[in-house]
Design a protein around this nucleic acid. Sequence first.
DNA 1: TAAGGGATATGCT
DNA 2: GCATATCCCTTAT
Length: 192
Amino acid sequence: MRVTLPFFNRPTLEVLEDLIGMVLVRKSSGSSATGIIVEAEAYRGEDDPASFAFRGRTKRSERLYGPPGRAFVYLTYGQHHMLNIITEREDFPAAVLIRAVEPREGIAMMVKRRKTDNLLQLCSGPAKLCQAFDIDLSLNGIQLYSPKSVLLIEERERPKNELAWRPRIGIREGKDRLWRAYVKDSPFVSYK
DNA sequence: TAAGGGATATGCT
DNA sequence: GCATATCCCTTAT
């Protein structure tokens, strides 16, 4: 599926699953960092106790109610940035948290930002990938489907001679809360 | 594997 | 004012 506005304006659990295997691109002064999304988590509706929207519209949850296809970046624990992708129609609060990516391009830059050369430690966590991709509050609200954007989601090119290139996706349903999708057997996911 | 520190925007009293 | 948060890292058992 092509990544344009309608891609994000759909039920969050569908977007969640489709985002797995897609490419996160961060452009910065000439070079760019890219990675394949291998783990993500859904937050949807005011009835989801894990969502910022659980207690209604506040300054913090406001962007969840905004138009789909934009980034919702915020700071937690005073030092870690989180990247969410807004889904569903305007006024319905929902998003997908990007939890882990498999680093592809710009790895040298990521190593520098993360201060580790362990590939498995580069982007295996929501705050880790933000650090590796230089994502902070300045990118809050940015459009993710414009080719001009410095942060965007792209469809992965189908590799030649590889028939079954789509990743094997696992879905976990939390007890009373979140849904998490991940690439089965990927060493780049955040949990052990 | 477990425990504790870090450092700040946000919401609640 | 105070408590808490979609977490990471270091240090200690």
